[in-house]
Amino acid sequence: MLPNFAYTRPDTLKEAVKQLGSEEARLHAGGTDLLGCLRDGVFSAQKVVSISKLDALRGITKTSKGGLEIGTLTTITAVAEHPLIQSDFTALANAAGEVASPQLRNQGTLGGNICQKPRCWYYRGEFDCLRKGGDTCYAAEGENQYHCLFGSDDTCFIVHPSDTAPALTVLDAQVRIAGRWRKKTVPIDSFFVLPADDVQKETILGADDIVTEIVLPPPPAGIKSSYCKVRARRSWDFALAGIALALAFNDAKVAHARVVLSGAAPIPWRSMAAEEAIMGQELTPDIISKAATAAVKDAEPLAQNGYKVPLFKGLVEQELAKMKV
């Protein structure tokens, strides 16, 4: 049984934002991550504010310029199966298809997927860890085989759990946010928060902010994108390692490159080093190998996650080789 909470399901976005302003109010979209967190006691809720009645926030529409607007409540299944996402924003369709299980994809939303809480077992378990306002990171010296290689700032070693976030990042997505005072749109690579900036937050969202849409700009001409996820078992699980790519070529040379790793850092981890290694180059075995080495050069493995270094290296090589024109 879940702990007690008040519940409201407003008819308007404005009312939802207002309701979220009260103390310890939590947003409910698909509810799959929220209910899990409440059940595990990761945080508590005095009030659950459900936005599931806000049908305007559901659905996928083409923008006039050839991009897409995806309502925050659009299910992961709808994203994975959308023909235009499959053809023009392939990384996102791939990633959505790799999220969790069919049941969770049918219920989980795209907005919820990028806002989900980390899966670190100390954070999810009965540990008063840094991210929950305590003063110790238990993963630093503990069981850390699923933790990060980059971006921890020696503070918190979570990995960002979302598959869709790295795909959205290589596609230069924008996140629209409605809050009490204003609406704003931010590029997705400034949406996520590193532990060094605020160890208790994963995103820039304030308590009464709601992600309303995710906007994909028109894809650059000739762009190819992909997402590949490695897990400990073939059936559903979170990523041990993953890579999202978006590349465009001029003749055979890379003219546009985005390389973003998942399962690597507390946020979707853009590997500028790998991008620099391939920009302007043909994807020869030598260049691919250099890019893979560059991608893991600054990795800081912990006691138990060293296996991720060769895993990421191999993954970068494998996926870049598939992109070769």
Binding site: Y7, G31, L35, S50, P102, Q103
Partner: peptide, 15 residues
Amino acid sequence: VNDVPLYACMMLAME
């Protein structure tokens, strides 16, 4: 739920 499989444990009855 509307012909689509979901986990009933992860859905509030209110929803």
